[in-house]
Simulated scan of single mutants.
Amino acid sequence: MPAQVEGDAGRIRQILHNLLGNAIKFTPSGRVRLRLIVQERSEQDVLMQWQVTDTGKGIPEKDLEHLFKPFFQVSAGQEGGGAGLGLSICSRLSESMGGTMRVVSEPGLGSSFSLFIRLPIGTSPPAMVPASKEGSQAPSAPLKLSVLVAEDNPVSQAVMCEQLEAIGAYPIVAADGHQALQLWQSKRFDMVITDINMPRMNGYALTRTLREAGVEVPIIGITANALREEGERCLQAGMTAWIVKPLSLGTLRQVLMKHCPGSTDTHAANDPGKEDFSGCIQLSQPMRQLLAQTLASDIEQLEKGVVEHDAVLVQQRLHSLSGALASINASALYSACQRLENMLQELPLDARLGGQVRALCGRLAQVAQRLSDEIPG
Rank of each mutant, 00 (worst) to 15 (best):
V52F: 00
L353A: 05
G221N: 09
P199Y: 10
S320P: 04
A241K: 15
R211Q: 05
A224H: 09
G362L: 06
A311T: 08
L119F: 09
P2W: 05
G10L: 14
E95I: 05
Y204W: 10
A324I: 03
R200E: 12
S146W: 00
Q285F: 00
D8Q: 11
G110F: 01
K258H: 11
Y334D: 02
L181A: 04
P348H: 06
N153A: 12
G221K: 08
G214D: 08
L19D: 05
I172Y: 04
A141Q: 14
I219G: 07
E300Q: 14
M201A: 06
A150K: 12
N270G: 13
I37F: 02
Q137P: 01
F116M: 11
T266P: 05
A169H: 01
C161E: 15
Q14D: 09
Q289M: 04
G122M: 05
I375K: 01
T223L: 03
V52C: 03
K69D: 13
A169Q: 05
R11F: 07
I328R: 05
S372C: 10
K274A: 11
Q301S: 11
Q182K: 14
L87W: 08
V217W: 01
P171H: 04
Q345G: 11
Q49A: 10
N202H: 06
A296W: 02
W242Y: 15
A23C: 02
P28H: 02
A269S: 12
G98E: 10
S186F: 00
G7S: 09
I219A: 13
V312M: 12
N329K: 12
Q51M: 15
Q4G: 07
Q289W: 00
R118M: 11
D190L: 02
F72P: 03
M191P: 08
T53P: 00
P272L: 00
R228V: 10
E61D: 14
P348F: 03
R352G: 01
F68M: 04
E106K: 03
M128H: 13
T294S: 12
Q157H: 03
C234E: 06
R211M: 03
P246D: 05
S29I: 01
S322D: 06
H66S: 07
P130G: 12
K304H: 09
K144I: 02
P107E: 00
Y334H: 15
E61S: 10
R228M: 04
I172F: 04
V52P: 14
P246C: 05
E232C: 01
